[in-house]
Design a protein around this nucleic acid. Sequence first.
DNA 1: GCTCTGCAGAGAGGA
Length: 994
Amino acid sequence: RADPKVADTILRNGLNNRYRVLEVSVIQRNGSDPEKHLTITASPSLEETELCILRNGWESVPVVPGDIVHLEGECSSGTWVINAQCGYLVLYPDLLLSGTTISNSIRCMRRAVLSERFRGSESGSRQMLVGTILHDIFQQSVTNILTQEKVQELANKIVYGQKYLKEMYQLNLKQAQIMQEVEEYLPSFFKWAEDFMHNPANQNKMQLKLSNGGKTEDVSSNIEIVDILDIEENIWSPRFGLKGKIDVTARVKIHCQSGVQSRIMPLELKSGKESNSIEHRSQVILYTLLNLERRVDPEAGFLLYLKTGTMYPVSGARMDRRELMKLRNHLAFYLTHSTCKSDVGKQNSQLSALPPVIDDSQACKYCSQMNNCFLYSRAVEQNMASVAFPPAMVPVIDRETQHLKPSHLEYFSLWYLMLTLELQSGEHKKGYKNIWMIPSLEREKAGDCVGNMIRVDEVDEISEGQYLHFFQRRNGAVPGTNLLVGDRVVVSGEEKGLLGLATGYVREVSATKVSCLLGRNLSHLPENTVFRLDHDEGDVGTGVPFENLSKLMRDSPVSERLRNLIIDFQKPHFIQHLSTVLPPQAKETVANILKGLNKPQKQAMKQVLLSKDYTLIVGMPGTGKTTTICALVRILSACGFSVLLTSFTHTAVDNVLLKLAKFKVGFLRLGRAQKVHPDIQKYTEEEICRSRSIKSVTDLEELYNSQPVVATSCMGVNHPILVRKQFDFCIVDEASQISQLICLGPLFCSKRFVLVGDHQQLPPLVLNAEARDLGMSESLFKRLEQNQNAVVQLTVQYRMNSKIMSLSNMLVYEGKLECGSEKVSNATVNLPNLKKLKLDLGDPSKTWLKEVLDPDTPVCFLNTEKAGCKPSDIGIISPYRHQLKTITDLMAKWKENRVEVNTVDKYQGRDKSIIIVSFVRNSMDENLGTLLKDWRRLNVAITRAKHKLVMVGCVPSLCCYPPLEKLLCHLQSQAMISFFCTLVWERGEVRLTC
DNA sequence: GCTCTGCAGAGAGGA
């Protein structure tokens, strides 16, 4: 009951009810099937309980106390009955599972569960791409009622357009090949249209089970498609815990003996073999359920095979729907219970078993999840007493995983567990469910949503599949919001049932309007539709690390090499002489570049050139990491090497590129242009393809091969270039801040790698405490640092004056940091109005300010209001967000307010002339909190200032934290403490005492 | 005990 996963769930009655299960009991009566009785409640106090009785197979639903369920059906005097004839129980209804996921689980649920974790395991195939293209052509043809000639034209436009070029490049296919395949289908398109769209009296009799006047009857009827209402309609159903995209939503006339019926029905297109299989039919049945969210029950749908133009009716009979929903519940159970607490009394989590391995080696042979499936059984399940494998599969599993050592299996299961725990923490915080569980007005308060919007102006198709929409607040101005340009949004209708209409990106936010680039054109919706735009936190970055973990375990030379280096700590190798790597013609260029570097930087260049495996560059604060990376890229490319340049954030990548752009080194920037620095946008693939109007695979390939330097974020590893190309070097900036498995991504497509970072600064963020304790915040940089022969340190810094530097030197760097020049060492802050100001400070109560303002004082307080330096030169940092809010609010009164206020964490990688650190803490409580216990956070905090570092805090309180205690001791011994100020709160006023 | 960045992604077929 204390499960945090459900602790914050909103319970309620009614159509979209949510019940908490309090008790589960199995009732076994003589001679009849067992029943399951659930004691449930929809009241937050858990007091008013109801009873739910599960019968006729529903008792198999794996529901346990604490679970959240949704009930469909009827409740009479506090009792729900879910049986063969009526009602549904939906387990974890806020977990929406897609139609394909559920139909894929019919044969093997294990595969369906694995596919949810390892999304990119299927790299796609020719058939799939052709399928996607055929869908597109068909959908556009029927929507626009095109003639045969026009359809041919459209096919040409799509195949020879830019839309699918990337996929074609990835699969190494030619456009002509695709076109040839596509053309074979076109005659069937026309045949279908002839049969069903333009010919009401067609001879294609179909058997349809439909309700009529209260009873269901099997009717023989003629089907006529009269109107196409939507294509790719996206429906989220929090009632059934389902989601899906419906190929075609059509108005259908059903002509039968008793008359004509008109219905809106789903049409599912298939370009493969005409199998009419249970999987295909199940998909249609699930779509009939999805339709309930928006319209009356269609009761049936159609399966259309594009190869032949044959259309099969599929009824959404109660029995089939019921079985599919039970399947969904099982899937939801496995996805939700991916970890469990080990033996009673212990608090440690461990991985749960997946759905069992099926006994069908024939089916497994072609399964895209085979590797992950066997890996999980070998690394995780083989040690579980409760898991038995089909005997025939045991040797297969062993054979397919024999390339892995015990250390590899251990690494896999540890990281799989940590990633899963972290995923659960993320789901708990974010997730889509807020969109349907919390009204827009309420979500607006937190800034995550803008509701009550109507669409204005025309929808503008910017490029294929990208529609620019404009929204305006129905009454008044757009409220204050966190929505920023470039953020992902989900557009829904305020009216229920219109969830997830489209997703896209924010283009512009003004006081009156929000414009968004969406994947679907919403202009077909009624003009008075009221929308809400929700900030889409999505489940970003959850798939990539799982995917990388799976890749690392593959039976391939690249993966084996990385396993040896990363898991088994194999010593990195270096070659002896530079002459063997340095081409004669590059010598002069390289020498010139080296001239601009200091000694440790030069050493770093040499080390990288000599490396056969990897190099770690420790970039202490202010030591010119960006300059070093920039020089490194120039040298490597002068030597003829290809380079993949990455970092976790777009900002970090662009920082290097901004510098690099000044030199004659060409590069290609991957990633969404919206997320890229404006000055770098012209180097993005998106921009280049637009400006050169690239429309053939050949041209695209040429572009991809044109630059030896490619830059992208670590998450962008699924780009086709990285799938097909191998680079000589991969450089990862800010590597000490990147989670191990995310950092691993770009390394698969490179022969050698360079990690740049500083493990004395903040590690990757890990939300889940247990995962953190298990070691999840260990970056790859930190892990490999134990191989000291691969490490070079940049120790000469150009940021801080000597006094500021000395703090960090004492704290963590053991005196290794040195100033780059006298100028740096002696630099002080320039305060032009100081003289005048000092006169104003005659009041004895302000003497402390005088001292504080003295440029020769490294530790002090500064009044930015009158001192006369630019506010933009000042940064205020604190470990705590709430403190920043208070400071920001206090400063809001000022006319000109350009002082940047931010968290320590956010200031990493940046600097300012003057930094004011507010340590906040002012109590001797036992509750210390963890933020200030971290040496790395303190190190970051005190190494941001170039000329003046002002720290504010309560000395005795702060002495409880070991890192601060050390710092304060040092300050005292250096006589810097006398200037230290204590910040005291009294009745909401800030008073400074010395 | 309070720190937060990444990003399209449901479905494209195959046995």
